[in-house]
């Protein structure tokens, strides 16, 4: 729960940075129940005579935490990606070495919170890869916790194959995209 609150604060800060330049009015999405949405629906008569055209509602754009902004806030720390084998979420020996170093940095900088992103290469379906990315992020999170990092400092998220690092369709590119990536936030 606390991690979610911290993330909300982080996102809020990111949002403020984004909005300072925006002139448009931000409309909040009401936090209402699904049932009210369904019960309250207009009786749209969809006959040929009266057709309602749908206007997209301009929602308040909230960006996910931007990695570059994050790293600039905290000095002297660097959390490089760890990579995974194809269709795998278990940590390789190389990954474990990198994570040991990440754990050390986390222990040396107690103010840091870490966002762990799980990613996949483009092969495989969108939905299965969202789940696989989640497994990868969780494998990293579990490893760091076992290394003694307070779970409250770690947050994980999956982007599946939706945010590749490199766009090429080569084995090398795919290997780079199969990754856990990190964003740091100073408390």
């Amino acid at each position: 729960m606390r991690n979610y609150f911290i993330l909300a604060v982080v996102v809020g800060i990111a949002g403020l940075i984004v909005f300072s330049g925006c002139g448009s009015e931000a409309t909040r999405i009401p936090e209402e129940s699904l049932e009210s949405l369904l019960l309250d629906e207009q009786a749209g008569a969809e006959t040929v005579e009266e057709t309602v055209t749908t206007e997209p509602v301009r929602e308040q754009p909230i960006r996910e935490p931007v990695r570059e902004e994050r790293v600039a806030e905290v000095e002297d720390v660097s959390f490089v990606d760890v990579n995974f084998d194809f269709d795998e979420y278990e940590l390789t020996a190389a990954a474990r070495e990198v994570l040991a170093e990440h754990a050390r940095q986390l222990k040396d900088n107690l103010k840091i919170l870490l966002l762990i992103e799980g990613h996949c290469d483009e092969r495989g379906t969108i939905e299965y890869n969202l789940a696989l990315g989640d497994r990868r992020a969780d494998a990293v999170k579990t490893y760091l916790i076992n290394y003694g990092i307070d779970p409250e400092r770690l947050y994980s998220i999956s982007y599946g194959k939706e945010k590749p690092l490199v766009p090429q369709q080569t084995e090398d590119a795919w290997a780079k995209n199969r990754r856990a990536a990190f964003s740091v936030v100073e408390k």
């Binding site: 729960m1 991690n3 993330l7 909300a8 949405l37 309602v52 749908t54 206007e55 509602v57 998220i157």
Partner: peptide
């Protein structure tokens, strides 16, 4: 990912009104 987390949303086509139907801070998909 509108609020940072992959949440479940339902949108009403007649007016675009959207509700976040997620109750938990977990990944929702498909």
């Amino acid at each position: 990912y509108l609020r940072g987390n992959p949440d479940l949303y339902v949108l009403r086509l007649s007016d675009g009104r959207t509700v976040n139907a997620s109750k938990q801070n977990v990944l929702h998909s498909a």
